[in-house]
Amino acid sequence: MAEIQIKNIAKRFGTYQALHNIDLTISDQEFMVLLGASGCGKSTLLRIIAGLETPSEGEVWIGGRRIDHLPPKDRGIAMVFQNYAVFPHLTVFENIGFGLRMQKMPNDEVTRRVERTAELMHIEQLTGRYSGELSGGQRQRVAVARALAMEPDVILMDEPLSNLDALLRLEMRAELKGVLAESNTTAIYVTHDQVEAMSLADRISVMHEGRIVQAATPVEVYRNPAERFVASFIGNPPMNFLPATPVKGGQWSVAGQMMDGPSANKALEFAIRPEDLKIADSGLTAVAKVVEPLGAHLLVTCAVEGHQFRAVLDSDLVVKPGETLTFAPLADRVRWFDPDTQKAVA
């Protein structure tokens, strides 16, 4: 059992508050992704769990054991680094076996485990090489194999795919997901790439300015953003927002159009994903500004009463800049946000 509990963790660098009292529980064998833009504190949080950074406040528990005062080596974790950190003076074999040797494991056991993990990561041909003779993708495999060979309770990954080119990243992503699913370890994965996060995670923690704004399954984060930030961060292109004014109980005026919504008595923001719009005879009136045919679909950037508004349409449609379009939002996909609290309103 390796449930991870993060209790009230805060981190300050001088006067700068990198993390604001974070609470998070990651259950055993869960794949948790910390997602956010650079500087949001996700790497700091990971490094605190690893023991590479000391928290200013709070506790970290792994498997019912408080570990925030322990050095990294005694935490039962393994880590994969952004730049792989494959030791240049050791062969691939010795790199993968490094942690096992540190535990004074007998030679034949080291060989057995190294060979098994090397095979798992498809690098069994490379065990005699040095890191200088490997490609980026191969180094990445060595780094993952080295972590897996430890058979850790928890595996921590800090943007492990960000230095690979796009195609390789796609391939490694799928492989990583398969390997980790079989290994029965709890995983924490830091990334700024939302597609990576969606594809890998059991749950995503979206971080913003040192806080976790939402921790939920990928579908939930996508469909029901808890805050306006999440809605504007997740999805490519992100959600559209339009100001909405209350007319009477549950009736709202959005860009001159009447819509059904929550029963609140203050100005809200209406939000809809660009792919949840249909061309219709009546609805929101928009003027197309830029038309981008992206192959699978057509991305049209329009203006609705001066607000930027994007729509993802069928690629068979022909739209010209300057053309006026009328959109009907899918009713069950419309979301509402309170501009003061930034929170979603049901």
């Binding site: 690893a50 023991g51 590479l52 050095p71 990294p72 080596k73 974790i77 393994a78 880590m79 680094f81 952004q82 730049n83 950190a85 030791f87 240049p88 003076h89 490094f98 942690g99 540190m102 535990q103 080295r146 430890m150 921590l156």
Partner: peptide, 27 residues
């Protein structure tokens, strides 16, 4: 010498001292 190499050694069971002797010093 990237600090990542040392950090990797720490997570793989090294103390500050053994990380130095096993990783930093040879390099």
């Amino acid at each position: 010498i990237p600090i990542e190499l040392e950090e990797a050694a720490w997570t793989l069971g090294c103390t500050r001292l053994t990380a130095f002797t096993k990783v930093v010093f040879p390099l």
